[in-house]
Every structure is written in structure tokens, then in C-alpha cells.
Computed example of a mutant assay.
Amino acid sequence: MNKHRIYTTSFASVYPHYVTKAEKKGRSKEEVDEIIRWLTGYSQEELEVVIKNKTDFETFFAEATNMNPSRSLIKGVVCGVRVEDIEETTMREIRYLDKLIDELAKGKKMEKILRKEK
């Protein structure tokens, strides 16, 4: 089975689209970065290195050794597919990130996006 092409796409090539999507709705690059750091466990410096090195999505998630356990609370539909039903691990992680960026662009509060306890 061939890998989906998103796996070999550099994270750096998609990252500006995440930021643009957020900024068009009055949100910030800093909020996008906070979401990515929350999901992956990367520090801001590590995230900047990933972007600079044009790391592909598969490696980006494979090297994120501190994935947030609360990501399993992310539910909903992205591109017509329920994220919680995606069996392939890397694709599910990619769709989790897409869903979080969608929530940011829709104006959801950061506490809700980051699945923080009340």
C-alpha cells in the first residue's frame, strides 16, 4: 500500500496555511504555535527547527515523543471523515491538528481547544 502524499509533504509547506487560516479569522500565529506545542510536546525552539529543516509530516509526528494524551478527546469531522474513527496513527494525528486549527478559526476559546479541565 502506498503512503498518502501528505506523509512526505514538509510540515513547513503547510504551516503557513494554518497561520493564514487562523489570522483570517482574527486569531494569531502564536495561538497556532500553542496548539501545535500542546498536541506534539515540541518546544517553540523545536518547532522552529522542524519548520526550518522542512521536516515531513511523518517524521514530524514520529519525532514528537511527548504527544498530549488528551488528544483522544478531539472529536469531529475533518474533510468528511470522523477523526476519532481514523485507524492509521499518523493520519489521525494529522487530522487532529487540522481539527484543532479549524476550531481556532471558528473562534473557539483556547481553553476548549486545548481540552483543559474546567
Rank of each mutant, 00 (worst) to 15 (best):
residue 88 E to F: 00
residue 104 L to E: 13
residue 79 C to D: 13
residue 70 S to V: 13
residue 28 S to T: 15
residue 76 G to K: 00
residue 37 R to S: 09
residue 117 E to A: 00
residue 45 E to W: 03
residue 112 K to N: 13
residue 42 Y to T: 03
residue 55 T to W: 06
residue 7 Y to C: 03
residue 93 E to G: 07
residue 45 E to G: 04
residue 7 Y to V: 06
residue 97 L to C: 13
residue 86 I to H: 00
residue 71 R to K: 12
residue 36 I to P: 00
residue 57 F to R: 05
residue 55 T to V: 04
residue 95 R to P: 01
residue 4 H to P: 12
residue 48 E to K: 07
residue 16 P to D: 12
residue 67 M to N: 02
residue 34 E to F: 03
residue 57 F to Q: 03
residue 105 A to T: 11
residue 23 E to W: 01
residue 106 K to E: 15
residue 65 T to I: 07
residue 94 I to C: 10
residue 71 R to W: 12
residue 72 S to V: 14
residue 60 F to A: 04
residue 16 P to M: 06
residue 71 R to Y: 10
residue 112 K to C: 13
residue 14 V to L: 05
residue 114 L to W: 08
residue 52 K to N: 11
residue 6 I to C: 05
residue 65 T to S: 10
residue 79 C to M: 01
residue 89 T to Q: 14
residue 109 K to G: 13
residue 50 V to P: 00
residue 19 V to K: 08
residue 72 S to A: 00
residue 9 T to K: 04
residue 56 D to I: 02
residue 33 D to N: 06
residue 105 A to C: 06
residue 111 E to F: 10
residue 18 Y to R: 00
residue 79 C to V: 00
residue 31 E to P: 02
residue 108 K to G: 03
residue 63 E to G: 01
residue 80 G to D: 06
residue 63 E to C: 09
residue 20 T to M: 05
residue 66 N to Y: 01
residue 35 I to W: 10
residue 110 M to G: 11
residue 33 D to L: 04
residue 65 T to D: 10
residue 41 G to M: 07
residue 51 I to W: 03
